[in-house]
Design a protein around this nucleic acid. Structure first.
Lengths: 135, 135
DNA sequence: TAAATTCCTATTGACAAAATAGGTTTTTGT
DNA sequence: ACAAAAACCTATTTTGTCAATAGGAATTTA
């Protein structure tokens, strides 16, 4: 299940895309519009800034803005960053140690297919698509 | 992420399908073969029995067995039962109260599509498919 | 009647998600 | 210069769920 972090991150990106004038938008505005506490949003935006999906500017007149056109952000990359891992099962996550049953496992190929399908799905949707109700 | 409950349930169903002679198979055997504690398996099998995916017989000579041919179990129904909900996001789960933002929400239709895709995927795979490495 | 087995209720332990708290630093407008 | 506005930073708390264990009760068969 996609957690609030991922869902909120998407909402923030959409909010910024919708109000994208080139100016910086303060977090207080996003928080007010989206009904999510500033403190919690800070945590999420920190990641997005660190990964260069957003630019943050301090001080009066500061805020956040997109670093690319909305069409160049995929939902997949946003979820991957904010959710940590989007692996469908533990055995496919990065942290997984090798499974001793892998040889006999009748399910692993299904999980792999599933994983690929999910990644594909989100990789092929952009923020602009969502904004324009194309999905 | 699919939890151990769902994954273990699948493994149990596969185990039973693989050793399906019509006789009842005691949990101790399944536990030994799969390397999962009997106590934990009990919890999972209870659900499967209650929902008539398995038949359980007590007493000496008892155990568990399938109630249908392996080809008539979909992975989807097994996961749905054991995972509680397979909804991708909270707003689509059964327990969700109506979202006040649904009207303006730019993401809900994506989540719905995603949900449908996931359900479709698992609904179209049977235990027999897995057993015969058809996936 | 004893052994083997499922069935039942409760509890524990660990961990992660969700959110809050309290500050520090930077920038700008006046 | 300085006060206000804003992002940035570190830590803590709260809450909930997953994963697993524990101990016994009921049932069936040989």
């Amino acid at each position: 299940m996609v957690s609030t972090k991922g869902r909120y991150a998407l909402r923030v990106m959409l909010d910024l895309a919708e109000h994208n004038s080139g100016a910086f938008i303060p977090l207080s505005e996003i928080s007010r519009r989206q009904g999510i506490s500033m403190k919690y949003l800070e945590i999420i935006l920190k990641t997005l800034v660190r990964e260069n999906l957003l630019e943050g500017r301090r001080g009066k007149g500061g805020g956040y803005r997109l670093t690319r056109p909305a069409g160049e952000y995929s939902v997949g990359e946003i979820l991957d960053l904010t959710e940590g891992t989007m692996a469908s099962v533990a055995c496919l996550s990065d942290a997984a140690k090798e499974c001793p049953r892998e040889k006999e496992c009748k399910t692993i190929s299904m999980w792999k297919k599933y994983d690929a399908m999910v990644h594909d799905f989100f990789r092929n949707i952009s923020i602009a698509d969502l904004l324009e109700d194309k999905i």
